[in-house]
Design a binder for these strands. Structure first.
Length: 236
RNA sequence: UGUCCGCUAGUUCUUC
């Protein structure tokens, strides 16, 4: 079963969800909780939230008790399909199981709430938790970016900067993508500069993509193209 | 019978 679980995981991560499912089905009744989790996260990582949720319900029906891994995974699936009502149902289960304080489950809950448009709930969880760390901050910032809300993303970012948990490259992917969605070129550039100069965070491929996106959306096509050609990464 | 361990989980550009 462990070998099969690993196969499901590998297929899922390599984008062959159908092959993962074939292995999953071959195992038949020998599934353990890891088998279910590996298959659920495989679906979640490919934005197949419906399939993940169907599997989650089936797992519960068959009497397999979801663990922290299951909840973190199913919440990611819920985020991908923006299903706030499913998310709330899952949250109730999380509370019943006493998993709300787990940092993985908590950040998944926050991610789900903010992406599903309920940033007040995400904020509330954040204020209550003892895990105000880089990842939970990032979850808020990235979530606001997904919702095209630069002001809220910036607001979170500034609060994060004032606090004592460090910013990282993911923080800036969130902030820069929020700028990009709003076509805020000047802000993109100044944040990018602050990232490298004040915070000594090395720019990644994603950061350059955000800048190119930002330039492109605001009509600066020549600049976008020249940045694309001069960035220290292979374009795709 | 129980507990623990081994395979699985959170924040990440564009498009959807």
């Amino acid at each position: 079963v462990m070998v099969a679980n690993t196969l499901i995981d590998v297929y899922g991560k390599c984008g062959s969800v159908d092959d993962a499912r074939r292995v999953f089905d071959m195992l038949n009744i020998k599934h353990n909780v890891v088998t279910w989790n590996a298959m659920i996260i495989g679906y979640a990582q490919h934005s197949l939230g419906q399939e993940a949720f169907i599997l989650f319900k089936k797992m519960v029906c068959m009497g397999v008790k979801p663990d922290k891994f299951t909840y973190a995974s199913i919440l990611k699936a819920v985020s991908s399909i923006l299903a706030l009502d499913y998310g709330k149902l899952v949250h109730e289960q999380v509370i019943k199981c006493g998993f709300e304080g787990d940092v993985f489950v908590l950040s998944s809950l926050m991610d789900m709430y903010v992406k599903c448009g309920s940033h007040e709930d995400a904020q509330r969880l954040f204020l209550q938790t003892c895990h105000q760390d880089t990842v939970t901050w990032n979850a808020l910032i990235s979530g606001h970016a997904h919702n095209n809300d630069y002001n809220l993303a910036l607001h979170c970012f500034q609060n994060m900067e004032q606090g004592d948990c460090g910013l990282d490259d993911v923080t800036y992917v969130g902030l820069l993508s929020a700028c990009g969605h709003s076509g805020l070129v000047k802000e993109s550039c100044s944040h990018f500069r602050a990232m490298t100069e004040s915070h000594a965070i090395a720019p990644t491929f994603d950061h350059y993509n955000c800048l190119v996106d930002s330039l492109g959306r605001s009509g600066c096509l020549d600049e976008a193209l020249s940045l694309l050609e001069s960035m220290p990464f292979q374009d795709n």
